[in-house]
Every structure is written in C-alpha cells, then in structure tokens.
C-alpha cells in the first residue's frame, strides 16, 4: 500500500521510525505549507536530503561548512559546473585540498541539518516513493536514524506542550499593562524582537507568523517565551466583536440588555 498521508496524522519522527525499522529504500517527498523537501534512504539509513531549491551541490555544502572559501566556491561554480559531485569530490581529494572524511562529514552534517529543520514541519503532506534514489552522480552517505529519531521525539513532546499552552494561533497578543519583569534587564533574541515588533491586538499570532516567516512551532516557541517572561498576554483579536446574533435570540441591543437584566434578577431570586 502506498505510504502517503498528512503530517498532522503522522509526524516526521514517526515516518523516520517506520523507515528505520522497515529498513526502507526510497525517497520521502514532503510538501509543507511554504516549501517542499526530498529525503532519500537506503536500507533504512539517511542517504540524501534537500529542502526546496536550496543549493545543495557539494561545492555549496563545503562552503557552508567552511571547508572551502567563498572565492573557491565561485571558482568551482565557474569552472566545474558540469562535474557531478562524485567527480568534484575526487578532484578535490586528488588535488590535496580535502580528504574523504572532510567531504563525508560535511555532507552528513548538512543532511542531518535538513532533517532537523523538517522536525518543525507540522503541516503538510508526504509520500514515500519506494526504490527511488537520488541521481548516481551524488556521493552516497549512510547515516543511522536512531539519534535523529530521539531528537525528533523530544521536539514532538515540546510541540505538544506548546500546543497545550497556545492552542490557537487565531488569538492576538498585547503587551502586559504591568509586566512582571524589569524591562531594562530583558535580553531578546532576534526572533523574539521580530515577533515583538508585530505585537498588537489587531494582529493574530497566525498573521505574525506569516509576517515573520515562522512556522507553527517556531512562532509558538517564541510566544511561549514571551508569555513566560510576563511581557505579553493573549487577547482576542482587535475588532472582533461579540457575535450577538448567535448569542441572543434578538438582534436589538436594548432587548439584549433587558434580557441580561432579567437573567440577573432571576438568579438573584433563586
């Protein structure tokens, strides 16, 4: 049966666990709300990973891990753009620039980083293309999934806790009137400052997440920190008014007030 579904029902951690236990070979294709990713496995081990259109050529990965300089990266792109990763790797080893371990370590760290980023994806769909592997010109790696699964499970628990604390992103934030913390002694991270700049009862947390390009987990994590620090509180979004038509059997405001006063008098008399 096709392995496909929704990340709300089946998390990335659960998928990795399944692939690990069943020693599956193939490519997991994930379509998130704003991006997509491919993660390839060979006999239950991580072999390759890519998010969106991010440059994950060997040259780009080596530059990100500081194994080559930006100038060397540009030179490779100009002069060796037709080479496969395998050919480029052999060239760099034979020329004495790098050894095999440098290259494999860089690739492994990059692919693990991609999977870690996927742990924050809680929305989206997935499908597993059995036996489909990345092109043969790429350098094969084999990374055990166990540690990644443990890390993912830890993150899942955090996600569940954050969901309990902040069940809906359709509410807004406002600064506390009397924050419990001395504002002069507060150190905010870059992400927190980005969120703080949008704190306003008119903006829902979902809108803030969109504006700051954060996913559900990231925005909840930042807001949880701000709530714990006593800086902000959750309020209903500005402009949201009582949906009187549904609450009251009448739409007339005076009749509604009269109705509430009748309720008050009745309860007093019980």
């Amino acid at each position: 049966m096709a392995l496909r579904g929704n990340l709300r029902d089946f998390t990335i951690t659960q998928l990795l666990n399944l692939i690990n236990l069943a020693k599956k070979t193939g490519t997991l294709v994930i379509e998130g709300p704003g991006d997509f990713a491919w993660v390839a496995f060979r006999e239950g081990k991580l072999a390759y990973a890519q998010i969106g259109r991010e440059d994950n050529s060997l040259a780009a990965i080596l530059q990100r891990s500081s194994k080559i300089s930006a100038a060397q990266y540009r030179m490779i792109k100009e002069r060796a753009s037709n080479m496969t990763d395998k050919e480029l790797g052999l060239l760099l080893i034979n020329a004495g620039y790098l050894n095999q371990s440098d290259i494999l370590d860089s690739l492994q760290q990059y692919f693990i980083g991609v999977v870690r980023r996927l742990f924050t994806w809680v929305e989206g769909t997935f499908r597993f293309e059995a036996d489909q592997l990345p092109p043969s010109g790429l350098i094969p790696v084999r990374i055990d999934l166990e540690n990644l699964i443990i890390e993912g499970a830890r993150q899942l628990r955090e996600w569940e806790q954050l969901q309990e604390e902040i069940p809906s992103l359709d509410m807004a934030l406002k600064f506390m009137d009397r924050p419990g913390t001395n504002l002069r002694n507060i150190n905010l991270s870059v992400e927190e400052w980005r969120v703080v700049s949008y704190v306003n009862p008119k903006n829902t947390m979902r809108q803030i997440a969109q504006a700051t390009k954060m996913n559900d987990l990231e925005i909840r994590r930042v807001i949880y920190g701000l709530l714990q620090a006593g800086l902000v509180e959750i309020v209903r979004p500005g402009g949201a008014t009582l949906t009187n038509q549904r609450m009251f059997p009448t739409t007339n405001k005076e009749e509604q007030k009269s109705l509430v006063n009748r309720l008050i008098n009745r309860i007093r008399s019980i």
């Binding site: 069940p167 809906s168 009582l242 949906t243």
Partner: peptide
Amino acid sequence: LETFRAYAPT
C-alpha cells in the same frame, strides 16, 4: 480557558 476564548469572544 484559552481554547474557549478562541472559540468565541464572549
């Protein structure tokens, strides 16, 4: 409390 506040602004 937060869940009910999200359901309805009452």
